[in-house]
Design a protein around this nucleic acid. Structure first.
Length: 369
RNA sequence: GCGGUAGUGGUGUAAUGGUUAGCACGGAGGCCUGUGGAGCCUCAGAAGCGGGUUCGAUUCCCGCCUACCGCC
């Protein structure tokens, strides 16, 4: 069996999958740091090893622009290219409709982008996108989806769901035919915060029998209660015993809440983005903003319960100092700490599911908000 | 001692005889969600002291004080 549920929390829908890919097996729930262009921002594959990162997500569209899928393929695939031995997902490029810098337009054939390196216009079709992801050689590919901005009118949401379904069919057909590397393909459910559209999209994609499903188009500015509602509705209409990936989430307490609803996989730029703005997460003291004066002579590590390479070596005072002198390296250090925190958070989640105490962890996390 | 120049938030500065004296850094608080950033938002905080001119002075004038420069 490709994916096997090995533990199920009794009070919530939290569970643990054994998630098998061509690059190894990982236990859910897990969090993937974003490595869009085959690197972390301010940290590299070697750093990832030190902070327990077992899976990351890169971006097929952006890598196809620079250095190109052909180059990555000729160098032995993305794992060798960036020297990361864990599991690599590739995002399709649908989300780049959000990028005014790249996005030109969308129609039934695909999404039009401008290549910022050459100025050339390109059309990203479901078939091309699948071939890029196969060439890159990721472990899990994502379908090309049509993601509306928030807020979107109902007509736009309907159009997005129709296209996302049509493209998912095309992605699946192409991928089934050309996948000779044992890559997995996940479908992505759209529908904004509209319950009926979420339901339609989820049910239709379920008939395509993807090995896993993602929920897309959330955490993009909609009220949080609507986000949870859309998540629940979507989950209700996709097969329960498949891995679920909530794309883009999020904040620590949000991850746990999502797990309690039955989500297994996450990715987000949130921990690194906030790290670059000097905010760090802790289990012992809630979040800290290290640029604050109160840390000027604070001898403690960021989190005294943390075993990350940053907390093992540096005080808050030292990190505060690096921030004050605008030393770029501090962005790396804080990113490493926050990513380690997220990995620990997932470990805690797994342990508490195994011990049937997940609801307690979830309760605790409300204080972190 | 004489002459010159300058005194504006914590710091560096701007404009101005007439509502809330602008900006930057620093300070406090908030934001960041399938990565265009080292970003964005909000708030607090100032006219050296005394006198004069004026309806009204941070602005013009005088004295004092302080700082810097030059000269004996």
């Amino acid at each position: 069996m490709q994916f096997e549920i090995i533990a199920q929390d009794k009070k919530t829908k939290a569970r643990i999958f054994k998630f098998k890919t061509k690059s190894g097996t990982i236990k859910t729930p897990f969090f993937m740091p974003v490595a869009t262009k085959a690197t972390g921002k301010f940290y590299d594959s070697n750093d990832m090893k030190k902070i327990k990162v077992k899976a990351i997500i890169a971006n097929a569209l952006l890598l196809s622009l620079e250095p190109s899928a052909a180059v990555i393929k000729s160098l032995g695939g993305i794992h060798r290219f960036m020297n990361f031995k864990g599991i690599i997902f590739t995002d399709s490029g649908g989300f780049q409709m959000y990028s005014e810098h790249l996005f030109l337009g969308v129609n039934e054939n695909g999404i039009r982008f401008r290549n910022p390196f050459t100025g050339q216009r390109i059309l990203c079709t479901p078939e091309k996108d699948m071939q890029i992801q196969l060439d890159i050689g990721s472990d899990v590919a994502m379908c090309l989806d049509d993601m509306p901005l928030y807020p979107a009118k109902k007509e736009r949401l309907i159009q997005s769901v129709k296209r996302t379904i049509a493209w998912a069919i095309r992605c699946k057909r192409y991928h089934d035919k050309h996948n000779n590397i044992n890559q997995l393909l996940f479908g992505i459910v759209q529908g904004g915060t509209d319950n009926s559209l979420r339901k339609i999209c989820a049910k239709k994609l379920s008939t395509l029998k993807f090995p896993g499903y993602a929920i897309g188009g959330l955490a993009i500015g909609e009220p949080e209660n609507l986000m949870w509602q859309a998540t629940k509705v979507t989950l209700k209409h996709i097969p329960e015993k498949t891995p679920k990936y909530l794309m883009g989430l999020g904040k620590p307490y949000q991850l746990l809440k999502a797990i309690s609803l039955g989500i297994d996989i996450f990715d987000s730029r949130y921990p690194t983005k906030t790290a670059r703005h000097n905010q760090v997460f802790t289990f012992s003291d809630s979040t800290l903003k290290l640029q604050r004066k109160i840390y000027k002579d604070d001898k403690n590590p960021i989190d005294k319960t943390c075993n990350c390479p940053v907390c093992q070596n540096y005080s808050r005072a030292y990190l505060h100092h690096l921030i004050k002198i605008k030393e770029p390296n501090v962005k790396r250090l804080l990113s490493l700490h926050n990513l380690y925190f997220y990995q620990c958070l997932m470990e805690k989640a797994q342990e508490s599911i195994e011990e049937n105490k997940f609801h307690k962890l979830l309760e605790e996390s409300k204080q972190w908000n």
